[in-house]
Amino acid sequence: MTDVTTATVAPPRPTTLDTLESEGIHIIREAVGGARKPALLFSGGKDSVVVLHLAAKAFWPARVPVELLHVDTGHNFQEVLDFRDRTVERLGLRLQVASVQDYIDDGRLRERPDGTRNPLQTVPLLDAIAGHGYDVVLGGARRDEEKARAKERVVSLRDEFGQWDPRNQRPELWNLYNSRHLPGQHVRVFPLSNWTELDVWRYIEREGIELPGLYYAHEREVFQRDGMWLTPHHSVRVRETDTIETRVVRYRTVGDASCTGAVESSAATVDEVIAEVAATRITERGATRADDRLTEAAMEDRKKEGYF
């Protein structure tokens, strides 16, 4: 059977998506194979949806043997939360929700003056990891999102405070991922490390993956603030000077509604989004995330504090 005489039986050249998919599945299997109690961060955002899709493939024909964890800022878009719950139901999985609102209500966290809750996710996340005893936490972060992330390992060690120490990272060699850690520590694992935004969208198209409708062009009431289109939401204080108007927009990321902006777009299908992303001249986070603009090192600071 191994006697190969014609070119037709040689495997076809793997495409970029084939390679990235197999790499992602390999990372997920390795992470879970070495874990005592793994969790997968699932928000209903496109990157976490792709990680979950890869996990479903990695363990097929068994269900994904991993609990899902979502840190709910209380500022999430309702339709994304509905999508999250439908997905969990469809795959027969268990979801744990850590609620930032609970922490604010009982005084463990205080609302920031700017109303942004992304930086507040760290404490509930770390408490949930410690409380549930997760030792390996899968996430959808990509290295191309941001300069600090470009240097993070696929398997990233976090200390007792969830902190990432960029100067003391383990070397990561070949595809040999070391997820060993001491009691109290845990590792974050990023199967999409090597994917770009365009890869994610091309994969969503190839696999026919369903996403929340916000990712596609729709009519929405919006107002402009700091050069971004925000939507009226219970988390956003609309000022008298804000002019609310109806525009055709879509979201490139679907995080906290108070700091995630929509972009004007007519891309209503996956194909159209791919064409738009391929032609875009502004990075994903630059266009839509106010919190990353705070300082040049904003992401690095939050990662060191235990953020995703």
Partner: peptide, 8 residues
Amino acid sequence: EIIATPSL
């Protein structure tokens, strides 16, 4: 051209 599936 960009949307084609090149190798890695």
